Deep mutational scan, measured.
Amino acid sequence: SYYEILDVPRSASADDIKKAYRRKALQWHPDKNPDNKEFAEKKFKEVAEAYEVLSDKHKREIYDR
C-alpha cells in the first residue's frame, strides 16, 4: 500500500506524510544509489506516486475507500 511505501500508519497526518516522503525520497534518490540506480529509480517513483495520492486530501479519501 502507499502507506507501507512511505512507512506511515493510515492515521498519519499530512505533516507526517510530508516528512516520510522527504525521508524516503532522499533514501531512494537515484543519485544517492549509484550502484543500484535502476532499482532506486523504481523505488523513487513508487515513493513519489504514494506521496502524490496521500498528500492530496481528495485523492487520499478515494484511496482509503
Rank of each mutant, 00 (worst) to 15 (best):
N36T: 08
A14W: 07
K45I: 08
L6F: 02
K59D: 04
Y2H: 06
Y51I: 02
Q27H: 09
E41T: 11
W28M: 04
R23H: 11
A25I: 14
D16Y: 04
I5T: 07
Y2K: 02
Y2Q: 01
R65A: 13
K42G: 08
K19D: 15
E52M: 11
D15Y: 05
D16P: 01
P30A: 07
A25L: 15
K32V: 13
V53D: 01
D35R: 11
A40L: 06
I62C: 12
L54C: 01
N33I: 04
K59E: 05
A25Q: 13
R23Q: 15
K59L: 14
F39T: 08
E52C: 11
Q27A: 07
D31Q: 08
D64L: 02
V8R: 01
D16I: 06
L54M: 03
A48V: 15
A50E: 00
I17H: 00
E52N: 11
E49I: 09
R60T: 02
A50P: 00
W28E: 02
R23F: 11
K45S: 11
K59P: 02
E46I: 06
K19A: 15
D15E: 15
A50R: 00
K37D: 05
A48C: 14
Y2D: 00
V8M: 04
E38M: 09
S11Y: 14
F44Q: 06
S11E: 13
N36A: 09
Q27Y: 11
E38H: 09
P30F: 04
I62P: 03
R10A: 09
L54F: 01
K43V: 09
S11L: 08
I62D: 11
I17R: 00
R23E: 15
Q27C: 07
V8T: 03
E4P: 01
P30Y: 04
P30E: 06
P9W: 06
Y2G: 01
P34T: 09
R23P: 02
D35G: 13
V8F: 00
K19M: 12
E49L: 11
I17F: 04
L6T: 00
K24P: 00
R23C: 13
N36V: 06
D15L: 09
A12V: 04
A50L: 00
V47L: 14
N33V: 05
P34S: 12
I62V: 09
A12M: 01
K19T: 11
R60W: 02
D64N: 04
D16Q: 10
D35N: 14
S13T: 13
A40I: 05
Y2E: 01
V8D: 00
W28N: 03
R65C: 11
V53G: 02
Y63T: 03
E46D: 07
S11R: 07
V47N: 02
V47W: 02
P30R: 04
R65Y: 07
R65F: 08
D35A: 13
K59Y: 06
A20G: 05
K18Q: 08
S1R: 11
K59F: 06
E49P: 00
F44G: 05
S1T: 14
S13M: 05
D31C: 10
A14P: 12
Y21H: 06
K32F: 14
D56S: 07
S13K: 06
I62Q: 13
H58F: 09
D7W: 04
V47S: 04
E41P: 02
K24S: 05
K18D: 15
K42P: 02
D7H: 06
Y2C: 06
R23A: 15
R10V: 12
E46M: 10
R22Q: 15
N33C: 07
S11H: 14
D31S: 13
D31A: 10
R65V: 09
R10Q: 11
R22N: 15
Y3R: 00
L54P: 00
F39D: 09
L6N: 00
V53M: 05
F39K: 08
H58Q: 14
V47H: 01
A25C: 14
R22M: 15
A20C: 04
Y51C: 05
P9L: 08
A25T: 12
V53I: 13
D16M: 12
A12Y: 00
K57Y: 10
R10H: 13
S55K: 09
K57C: 11
V47R: 01
R10E: 08
S1Q: 08
D31G: 08
E4R: 07
E52G: 10
S13Q: 05
H29K: 07
A48G: 09
K18Y: 15
E4L: 08
E49S: 06
K32D: 07
Y51D: 01
F44W: 13
V53N: 05
A14S: 13
R23I: 15
F44T: 06
A40K: 03
F39Q: 09
I5K: 04
D64Y: 02
E4N: 09
E52Y: 13
R22I: 15
P9Q: 09
K24D: 02
A48F: 14
H58R: 14
D31R: 07
K43C: 09
P30L: 04
Y3I: 00
W28V: 03
Y51V: 03
P30D: 05
A50W: 01
E52S: 11
S55L: 06
E52R: 10
K32R: 14
E61G: 08
K32A: 14
I62S: 09
Y21P: 00
N36Q: 11
D31Y: 04
K43P: 01
D56A: 03
K43Y: 09
D56N: 09
R22C: 14
R60Q: 04
K19E: 15
L6W: 00
F44I: 06
A14V: 13
D7R: 04
R65N: 14
E38N: 08
H58N: 15
E38S: 12
K42L: 13
E61H: 09
D64F: 01
A48M: 15
K24G: 06
A14Y: 14
W28Q: 02
D16H: 07
D35E: 13
D64P: 02
A20Q: 05
D7E: 13
R10I: 13
D7A: 07
D15A: 12
P9N: 08
N36R: 12
K45T: 08
S11W: 15
F39I: 10
R65T: 11
K37Y: 12
R65S: 13
H29C: 10
R23D: 15
K37F: 05
L54N: 01
D35L: 14
Q27V: 07
P34F: 09
S55H: 07
P30N: 05
I62H: 13
K45G: 06
D56W: 01
K43L: 08
A40W: 07
L6V: 01
S13R: 05
L26D: 15
D31E: 12
E49R: 07
L26R: 10
Y3D: 00
R23S: 14
I62R: 08
V8Q: 03
V53C: 10
K32P: 02
Y3A: 00
S55T: 06
F44V: 04
E41N: 10
Y2P: 04
I17C: 02
K37Q: 12
V8C: 08
Y63A: 03
I17M: 04
K57M: 11
N36E: 07
A12F: 02
P30T: 06
W28G: 02
A12W: 00
V8A: 03
A20E: 02
H58P: 05
L6K: 00
Q27W: 06
K19R: 14
K42S: 10
E38W: 09
V53R: 03
Y3C: 01
A40T: 04
S11Q: 12
H29G: 10
Q27R: 07
Y63V: 03
D15H: 12
A50D: 00
E4C: 14
P9V: 07
E41A: 12
E52H: 10
A48D: 08
E46L: 12
K18L: 14
R65G: 11
R22T: 14
E61F: 07
K24I: 08
K59H: 05
Y3P: 00
Y63R: 02
K24F: 06
A25E: 11
K19Q: 14
K24W: 06
S11F: 13
A12T: 02
I62F: 09
D16N: 04
F39P: 03
P30Q: 06
D15C: 10
K45V: 07
K57I: 14
K37R: 15
E4M: 09
P34V: 12
A40M: 06
S13L: 05
A20V: 02
K57F: 12
N33L: 05
A25N: 06
V8W: 00
A20S: 05
A50K: 00
I5Q: 04
Y3N: 01
R22P: 03
K32M: 15
K45Q: 13
L54S: 01
D35H: 14
E41G: 07
D56G: 03
A20F: 01
D56T: 05
H58S: 13
L54V: 02
P9C: 12
Y2I: 03
S13N: 12
A48S: 14
L6A: 00
A20R: 01
H58D: 13
E49C: 08
D15N: 09
K37N: 07
D16C: 11
A40S: 10
V47Q: 02
S11P: 03
A20T: 01
I5Y: 05
Y63F: 05
P34D: 07
K37P: 14
W28F: 12
K32Q: 15
Y63C: 03
I17K: 01
F44N: 04
P34W: 13
E4K: 09
E61N: 07
F44P: 01
L6Q: 00
L26T: 11
P9E: 08
A50H: 00
